[in-house]
Nucleic acid binder design. Structure first.
Length: 290
DNA sequence: CCTTGAACCTGGGCGC
DNA sequence: TGCGCCCAGGTTCAAG
């Protein structure tokens, strides 16, 4: 899935088309994804104007001109595609059969903006993604968002904050960084990459990271997220950008997916290893990550 | 409370 | 070629 940089890239692709657009029809093509769609999903969206397309951790948060707020998660394989513009039908000329539906296209949002029609298509082969409604005034306390920790973007995540989050934790550092209650938005790829950049072992006890180590790790986390967003995210398997193009950050991976290759750190003679931690692959160099 | 493991799905790649 | 197994960006839930 899409980790934070991929979701942010998707958000930036959707915002120019969705913001200020009116939703004039929603095709919901199955009753559920990971969870059932909310009651009256299509009808509660139809007729609404989109005010903003935001993001919290890996969740897209779409504000409308009145309740509900639409929360969307891409799961492991979800993606949004934008179709249309000048050649698209506009309200009144709208025909369902005009939608060219591909396998696993689960939701089609028909939008009208500045007199032009657009379709936003949500595709998700594995259906680990989901969509939900929240009330704007209770957004922060919605079950999906209430427990999320600090965003790894911006300057809020520094060494002292990170050390406080990790203090006393008995789990491996890798598992702690994946915990969305502590830092919200990191996933398997960027945790591996940040640990390599910081020179810290994924197996180290989380609670042992403090002081200079914590400062280095906080810097590494912010840097890898910033770099990945700047590159338009990573493209793995079926993840793609809203225009169907691919992100480039995967070419910058230092350890992820590089099992058996030489460590890329200057002067390090180690080899990238793959181990399994809590059921998921960890890639790291046991020589320079301690 | 903390931590771990199973469950939810489909599809691609690989070895036989 | 076909089959079975392993693997894949995440989150929720149950149990220790």
């Amino acid at each position: 899935m899409p980790e934070l940089p991929e979701v942010e890239t998707v958000r930036r692709g959707l915002a120019p088309v969705m913001e200020d657009a009116t939703i004039f029809a929603v095709e919901q093509r199955r009753p559920d994804l990971r969870f059932p769609f909310p009651e009256d999903f299509a009808s509660r969206l139809e007729g609404r104007r989109i005010v903003s397309v935001g993001r919290r951790a890996k969740f897209l948060v779409i504000h409308l001109d009145r309740d509900p707020v639409l929360i969307a998660h891409l799961g492991m394989s979800g993606s949004f595609r934008i179709h249309g513009g000048a050649d698209e039908n506009i309200p009144g000329g709208f025909h369902h059969e005009r939608s060219k539906i591909a396998a696993h296209d689960h939701v089609v949002f028909h939008l009208e903006r500045d007199g032009q029609a657009h379709r936003i298509v949500y595709n998700d082969p594995r259906r680990f993604g989901f969509m939900a409604f929240a009330e704007a005034r209770d957004l922060e306390s919605h079950p999906f968002l209430a427990t999320l920790g600090i965003e790894p973007t911006g300057n809020a995540l520094d060494g002292a904050v990170l050390a406080a989050l990790l203090a006393g934790r008995r789990s491996p550092l890798k598992a702690a960084l994946l915990d969305q209650k502590l830092i919200a938005g990191l996933g398997n790829i960027y945790v591996c990459e940040a640990l390599w950049r910081a020179g810290l072992s994924p197996k180290r006890l989380a609670g042992t990271v403090s002081g200079q180590r914590a400062a280095r790790l906080a810097d590494a986390i912010r840097a890898v997220i910033t770099d990945a967003i700047a590159a338009g995210g990573s493209s793995l398997r079926d993840h793609q950008l809203t225009d169907g193009s691919l992100g480039y950050f995967q070419h910058s991976f230092s350890v992820y997916g590089r099992e058996g290759e030489a460590c890329r750190r200057e002067g390090c003679l180690g080899t990238v290893k793959r181990i399994v931690q809590s059921g998921r692959s960890t890639f790291y160099c046991s020589v320079c990550q301690r």
